[in-house]
Amino acid sequence: MVLLQVLLNGLLLGGIYACIGAGFSLVWGVVNIINILHGSFIVLGGYGAWYAYAHWGVHPFIAMLPIGLLGYAGGWLLQQYVIRHVMAAKVLVTLTLTFGLNLLLNNLMTFGFSADFRKVVLPSQEPITWAALTLPADRTLSMLAAVAVVMLTHVLMTRTMLGRSIVAVRMDPQAAQLMGVDVPRTFAATFGIGTGLALIAGAILSPIFPISPVAADGYLGKAFIVCVLGGLGSLPGVLAGGVLLGVVESVGSYFLGSSHALTLSYVLLLAFLLLRPQGLMGKKGFE
């Protein structure tokens, strides 16, 4: 029964990890940019949810909707007027640009909110119990919200004209352009969606984890691992990769101690890079 509780804890954590990695995977898979800003965007979304709750009493799960829309607008503008000019350059150039922008955003958040940890403190809720199993109410609700966001994004990708355009550009930008797809605007929309998803993830995480600019690198690392495990650009793969990472960390922490959770994450990353670099649901050789 104890092991089952550990597995359930891993599933809760995995759903949250999937939301962390969704926007990162989308931008990397479609725009072909490793967005170093992603972790700071998540922290920024957390600050937005904290501010909305502390000053206006708006619940983070409600605040995440306007926060996500603002993130989309900001990401669209950033890609259209800044990142677009270096997309044809070598990967080192885009890495350097997003790294520099990340330093700027991180320092702006430190200046505006200080480096002190903040947290959205919601009214206490009774844990969900079933038989001998116990699920924290806050983590359960956050996991459900995170999975819902990932699945709704998947529906957007598969059932709308914008989503089909994004998938077409991901598969072959030149062929998509010949079919009438506005590739530059599709790139901007994809980056906007990825940014919006990152800010929404921050809002979802705000009742669970403390918010501080120093947490940005940790979120970026988790997003990178989830993308590799699930398969680049695949939202169902992101969900599978997040669950796998959450379960491995939870079970490994139970047997080896929580201090080894990060080590297990990177061991799993290396194993996939060596044995299955396309991830759980990616296509081998696809770029």
Rank of each mutant, 00 (worst) to 15 (best):
M161K: 15
L144C: 09
V181D: 06
F113V: 06
G194P: 06
F111C: 08
G221R: 04
L199S: 05
L232Y: 00
A240R: 06
G237V: 10
L11R: 08
L205I: 05
N102R: 07
A52M: 07
G231K: 00
G14I: 00
I36P: 03
G180D: 10
V150F: 05
C19M: 12
L97D: 07
G221N: 04
I166H: 03
V43M: 10
L133N: 00
N102E: 13
H260T: 15
I33V: 14
P127S: 11
G10C: 08
A201F: 10
T140P: 03
M1V: 06
V2N: 14
L273N: 12
W130Y: 13
A131K: 12
G242H: 03
V183W: 12
G46H: 10
L103F: 14
L275D: 07
M143P: 00
V58W: 04
P173F: 01
S165E: 13
G180C: 08
I42K: 01
L197S: 01
G75A: 04
H38S: 09
I42F: 09
L44G: 03
R84C: 09
M143L: 12
G39E: 05
H85D: 02
T129I: 14
W76A: 11
F61S: 03
V93P: 06
L268V: 08
N9A: 12
V214M: 13
